[in-house]
C-alpha cells in the first residue's frame, strides 16, 4: 500500500460542505486534552548479506520511535507520553536472517522483496507510520482530540486529524484556492474531499501571519477520514482552526515555523534522543555482526 499514490489530487470534491467558498472562523470548545502524535526514524547501519549465487543482498538496520504529547487545556501543561522505540533489521530480496544479539538493543528481523535500499528505507518509514497510526487510534479511543503529524493512516474510522505541513500538491482550483490567501489566523477553508481508495475530508487553516512570506505561508492542511459523518468532520475542522494557532512555532526559533508545531518539535527532539546515540548504536551493531557469516 503506497499512500503517496492515494494523495494525487484527482477528483477533488469542493462542495461537500458548501459551495460558498470563503474563510470560516474556527469555533467550538477547547478539548479537555489534545494529543499530538509523531514519529521519527533513523537508519542505524547498512547491512550486506552475501549470497554467493546471486550476489550481495542489501539490508538496513533502522530504529523508529513514536510517541505523543498530551496538552491539558485546563492545567495548561504538556507532557510526553507513550514514547516507544522499535528497532528493525530489514533485509532485501526476501532473505531472512536473524541478526545476532546486539548488546542492550533488540532488533527484529524482517525481509522485504526489493533489492533496492530506498525501498527498504521506505519500509522502515511504513513501520513507523504504523506505530503512529496505532497510537493515534488508541488515543482517539481514549477520547482525546488527536493531531497526528503527517497524512492520516487508513485505519478504522477514528477522529484523528492529520496535520500536513507542506503544500506539495495543489488540491484546489483557482476558484477556491484564493480563499487560502484570505485566511486569517484561526480561520479555515471549507471542507473538500478527495481520495479514491481512502477518501478523506481536508481543509486548510492559517496558523500565523508570516512577515515577509507569500500569501500561503503560515497555512497548513489538515485531514480526517471521510468515513466519519460530515458533521463530525466539520467539528474537527472547526476546533482545529481554533486550536492550532496557539501551537504555532516562532520563526526565529524553527526554520519550519510556523507549521512545525511546538509540541511536535519537542516530541521529535525527545524521540530522537530515545533512538540513542547514533555512534554508540553503530558500534554495538558492528561488534554484534563482527565475524558473522552472512
Amino acid at each position: 500500500m503506497d499512500l503517496a499514490q492515494d494523495l494525487t489530487p484527482d477528483s477533488v470534491d469542493t462542495e461537500v460542505e458548501t459551495i460558498d467558498w470563503r474563510p470560516l472562523d474556527g469555533r467550538g470548545e477547547l478539548p479537555a486534552r489534545v494529543a499530538f502524535v509523531d514519529g521519527v526514524r533513523r537508519v542505524d547501519a547498512r547491512l550486506t548479506a552475501d549470497n554467493p549465487q546471486t550476489g550481495p543482498v542489501p539490508g538496513i538496520c533502522g530504529s523508529c520511535a513514536a510517541g505523543s504529547v498530551i496538552w491539558d487545556s485546563a492545567q495548561r501543561c504538556s507532557q510526553i507520553r507513550d514514547a516507544d522505540v522499535r528497532r528493525l533489521a530489514i533485509l532485501g530480496d526476501g532473505l531472512r536472517v536473524e541478526l545476532p544479539a546486539v548488546s542492550g538493543l533488540v532488533y527484529h528481523s524482517e525481509s522485504f522483496p526489493s533489492r533496492e535500499t530506498p525501498a527498504l528505507i521506505q519500509q522502515l518509514q511504513t513501520r513507523m507510520r504504523q506505530i503512529e497510526g496505532e497510537l493515534s487510534t488508541a488515543l482517539a479511543d481514549e477520547g482525546l482530540f488527536v493531531i497526528s503529524d503527517g497524512p492520516i493512516q487508513p485505519l478504522a474510522p477514528h477522529a484523528v486529524v492529520g496535520f500536513i505541513k507542506r503544500q506539495l500538491a495543489p488540491y484546489l482550483e483557482a476558484a477556491q484556492a484564493h480563499v487560502m490567501g484570505q485566511l486569517a489566523p484561526g480561520q479555515r477553508t471549507p471542507l473538500f474531499c478527495f481520495g479514491a481508495r481512502y477518501p478523506r475530508y481536508s481543509w486548510y487553516l492559517r496558523l500565523a501571519r508570516v512577515v515577509g512570506g507569500h500569501s500561503w505561508s503560515g497555512v497548513a492542511r489538515c485531514e480526517c477520514t471521510a468515513t466519519l459523518p460530515l458533521g463530525q468532520a466539520r467539528e474537527l475542522a472547526d476546533v482545529s482552526a481554533l486550536l492550532l494557532p496557539r501551537f504555532a512555532s516562532a520563526q526565529h526559533i524553527d526554520p519550519r515555523a510556523p507549521q512545525n508545531l511546538v509540541p511536535i518539535g519537542a516530541l521529535e527532539k525527545h524521540l530522537r534522543r530515545l533512538l540513542g546515540d547514533a555512534a554508540l548504536v553503530y558500534r554495538s551493531l558492528r561488534s554484534a555482526v563482527a565475524g558473522l557469516e552472512m
Binding site: 496538552w71 491539558d72 495548561r76 496557539r246 501551537f247 509540541p263 527532539k269 525527545h270
Partner: peptide
C-alpha cells in the same frame, strides 16, 4: 528541562504548549 530557548519558558509555564 526541554526548554532550548529563553522564550520556551513562556511556552512551558504559561500556555504549556511545550512539554517541559
Amino acid at each position: 528541562e526541554g526548554a532550548s530557548f529563553e522564550s520556551d519558558t513562556h511556552r512551558i509555564a504559561e500556555e504549556g504548549t511545550l512539554p517541559g
